[in-house]
């Protein structure tokens, strides 16, 4: 576990050293703030003290930002050869991947933390459903975990950051849009199957304030599956033919 922390500490620091972290936080807050307070179905338009506009925008910003965070994490190590240093240190592939996973999640958590003033100001305006807000944040974290898992997998199979970015967006589009569309165009078991795979369904039920174990299992298993595939890709080098 120590090693996981060591790796995540370095990764997190490199986010801040390379400005990625600042850009992420500023753009994330800017975009979601703009739509929460100023434009479209913002708080004043809706006329309710709710963070729903914030969450629905954050949902899409994270969808674009997380692949941008994870794209270089493994692919860049492969490209520069530093992966050789890591592989020859006494750490397991799981420790390596979990460290990177944790670093991305920490950065997302920091960005979400900075959005707490939105919560507090909406709270000042009127009566707010605290349960729904916390569930919304919890849903964000769960969704981030799933997207980071996908992103790390995409990053592990290539040494090109752009390929990793596009691939994780591509996989993400399936979970965010395509499965949803398919769920609507099929009926019966097939429809239910796609409906279960659709990320937006699970996310909206959590952000309404209902935490169901099925939703938890859904997000965690996507995250785990992504990390598991990434680990498998990395450990391929150990196979004795």
């Amino acid at each position: 576990m120590d090693k996981v922390w060591t790796i995540s500490k370095r990764e997190l620091r490199s986010f801040f050293d390379s400005l990625i972290a600042y850009i992420l936080i500023i753009v994330f807050l800017g975009l979601s703030g703009f739509f929460t307070w100023l434009y479209g179905s913002d708080v004043f338009f809706v006329g309710q003290a709710t963070l729903q506009p914030f969450f629905s925008i954050a949902y899409w910003t994270l969808f674009f930002f997380i692949p941008a965070l994870t794209m270089r994490m493994i692919s860049d190590e492969k490209k520069t050869g530093t992966i050789e240093l890591l592989f020859t240190k006494p750490i397991t592939d799981w420790q390596l991947i979990l460290g990177k996973f944790l670093a991305s999640l920490e950065l997302i958590a920091i960005a979400l933390l900075f959005s707490l003033p939105y919560y507090i100001s909406v709270w000042m305006i009127g009566p707010i459903d605290h349960g729904a807000v916390w569930c919304g944040y919890f849903g964000m974290i769960l969704m981030s975990m799933a997207l980071i898992g996908i992103g790390l997998f995409a990053s592990s199979i290539t040494s090109n950051q752009i390929v990793a970015f596009l691939l994780s967006l591509f996989i993400g589009v399936f979970f965010l849009i395509i499965f949803d569309v398919l769920a609507n165009s099929f009926t019966g078991v097939t429809g239910q199957f796609f409906s279960y795979l659709s990320l937006s369904n699970h996310y909206s039920s959590i952000s309404r304030g209902v935490i169901d174990s099925r939703d938890l299992i859904y997000f965690l298993s996507i995250a785990f599956f992504g990390l598991f595939l990434a680990q498998t890709v990395l450990s391929k080098r150990n196979i004795v033919e």
Partner: peptide, 27 residues
């Protein structure tokens, strides 16, 4: 202790920080 062929290093890390990082990884 291994020095790989083209000596890959984290370009964006300061020397001391990098050595501390490796020391931690090496236990």
């Amino acid at each position: 202790g291994y020095l790989p062929e083209n000596n890959p290093l984290y370009e964006d890390m300061p020397v001391l920080e990098y050595l501390e990082y490796v020391a931690e990884l090496q236990g």
